[in-house]
Design a protein around this nucleic acid. Sequence first.
DNA 1: AAATCAATTTTGATTGATCAAAATAATGTG
DNA 2: CACATTATTTTGATCAATCAAAATTGATTT
Lengths: 224, 224
Amino acid sequence: MFSSTVENYLKAILVHGEGSGGEVMPMGALAEALDVSPGTVTTMVKALAGQGLLAHRPREGVKLTKAGRAAAAAVLRKHRLVETFLVTTLKMDWAGVHEEAEALEHAVSDRVLERIDELLGHPTVDPHGDPIPSAKGEMAGPGGASSSRLTLASCELKTQWSVARIRDQTPAFLNFIRDTGLKPGARVRVTRRDPAGGVVCCEVKGAGEAVIGLGEAGNIEVRK
Amino acid sequence: MFSSTVENYLKAILVHGEGSGGEVMPMGALAEALDVSPGTVTTMVKALAGQGLLAHRPREGVKLTKAGRAAAAAVLRKHRLVETFLVTTLKMDWAGVHEEAEALEHAVSDRVLERIDELLGHPTVDPHGDPIPSAKGEMAGPGGASSSRLTLASCELKTQWSVARIRDQTPAFLNFIRDTGLKPGARVRVTRRDPAGGVVCCEVKGAGEAVIGLGEAGNIEVRK
DNA sequence: AAATCAATTTTGATTGATCAAAATAATGTG
DNA sequence: CACATTATTTTGATCAATCAAAATTGATTT
Ligand SMILES: [Mn+2]
Ligand SMILES: [Mn+2]
Ligand SMILES: [Mn+2]
Ligand SMILES: [Mn+2]
């Protein structure tokens, strides 16, 4: 249906909105996200707007149309289900799965995805804790409604929390997360927080003590 | 490394050789296999020859070089392992897996393939009975040495045979094969063969009687 | 208001992959 | 051998996706 290139454009706009409440995405941000030149984005965006997939507000940015959002959600669903599959079924190191999924999301058919979803038992979040859009394209309120976006930098001390999502998904940080056991689902209790020294200490259920920078702690969302 | 297009060219030449003992593949056959125009093939072949992936004998055809064969074997390995995975792990209908694998073979990385191979227990043939090249690119003698290429049209009567490979891999024929139970691995005994009427009757272990045309029977290879 | 700056758009060009149609070469037929 | 047939190659063009560099625009300073 759509080329890999088009799918990547649409998905990038959707995930941008996920982080920053559905506003228009500036052309520069899109160019950055896709690692292409600004001029390329302008050209491409005009073509996609012509196809009714997105609205171009010149000198302002882009916004997905209904059709564009549906297509983007389908790609994002593939991406996140594939990531989950790679980690759960194929036992791959989760620091690398994003890159793999970046290619597979364009090659996995709806029929194959269907089977993967089934095999995994219809998961609702991926290994990083990001929500998996439903087959109908519904996104479980990601940046918005659900939780109040607490993190290890802001949650109450000495209470049991559950790691919900890792914001910084660079391989290096993900490896650190793996090593400390602070993966989504892990139960954690912040024992001490020192804003002056910029250090957060916590107790990870089943994985012992973990010390982490305050800024980094702000990239680990918790819940409950 | 190589584009999907290049991978498809190389694989097509390799599988052609599989069927017809390693000779040069005529340009027309390649155009046919890839469903592109002859002129496109000429252009592309000259480019690939320039990259040392194949040898172009003008007005004659193409032949893979060492490097080309290695690359082609890697793609074919991906294709066949993916097919096996789709059937075995994802329980997909085997009549459709070829098409799926045609796309996935270009998106599955070596690391992912590694895990799939592991998960499947290092299979040596795909669901159609075609040999899966090894990780080093070695092809288990496909059209050649191994068996004497017996089929349901030529094997001895009243003996137990094992279905080894389905030559005609069109969805329609594969569906027929599924319905009769004559899949690779099935045990079968030819009870009657009528060359005049063009009919072959056989007894499929665990799936009852099956009647099949003589020509069609020649597309079902047996062994043992 | 004028000058400056950063973001965006325009312009002109390139690359990979393709096609249709014309030109050419090899092969078979009378 | 001359002609017809077929396979292959050449030619000239298109399309998607991209870039670098120049032009434009809107906003921010002075
Ligand atoms: Mn992608
Ligand atoms: Mn993810
Ligand atoms: Mn393919
Ligand atoms: Mn196969």
